[in-house]
């Protein structure tokens, strides 16, 4: 949607947008680049909902926005999501890798990920057999 300044016959330019506190509508402000006259458009909640559900952004933030991975899921899931941003990957010690190698081949990738996630959540920088034992007890894992 665009607006034209009737006096100047110039297309108005978007200045900013301000979401309402309940998130249901948005005030979008335009100004004439020639005379400086401003107007604001208020969207209705249905329009705001549709735009947000498309995963696009409106206004100036759209110009620089490189969307975050899984932005819709992380933003819109009621109750929040448990996705985490990446941190330093804990290092596996040789002893821990030997113990991992004793697990059946078809579960090694899965088990490695579980231990790595556990260590990352705990803030450990390396994964040792002791960390594996701790994780195994904490996660209720058996047989690996």
């Amino acid at each position: 949607m665009k607006f034209v300044c009737d006096d100047c016959r110039r297309a108005m330019e978007l200045v900013d947008n301000t979401p309402s506190e309940d998130g249901g509508s948005m005030a979008i402000r335009y100004t004439c680049p020639n005379c400086g006259r401003s107007i604001s458009m208020i969207t209705n909640p249905g329009e705001t909902q549709m735009v947000r559900s498309l995963g696009v952004t409106i206004g100036h933030e759209a110009l620089s926005a490189q969307p975050e991975p899984m932005a819709i899921i992380r933003d819109a899931l009621a109750g929040g999501s448990v996705a985490a941003t990446t941190g330093p990957e804990p290092m596996w010690t040789d002893a821990a890798l030997r113990r991992l190698a004793a697990a059946p081949t078809f579960v090694q990738g899965m088990v490695r990920r579980l231990y790595t996630d556990y260590a990352r959540q705990k803030g450990y920088t390396e994964i040792t057999p002791a960390v594996m034992t701790e994780a195994r007890e904490a996660l209720g894992m058996t047989g690996v």
Partner: peptide
């Protein structure tokens, strides 16, 4: 039980059995 971790190249999938 695995968590989705958002990295530089996107969201890391979980690893199931048989990788």
């Amino acid at each position: 039980g695995q968590r989705v971790v958002i990295g530089e190249n996107g969201a890391r999938p979980a690893i199931g059995v048989a990788d």
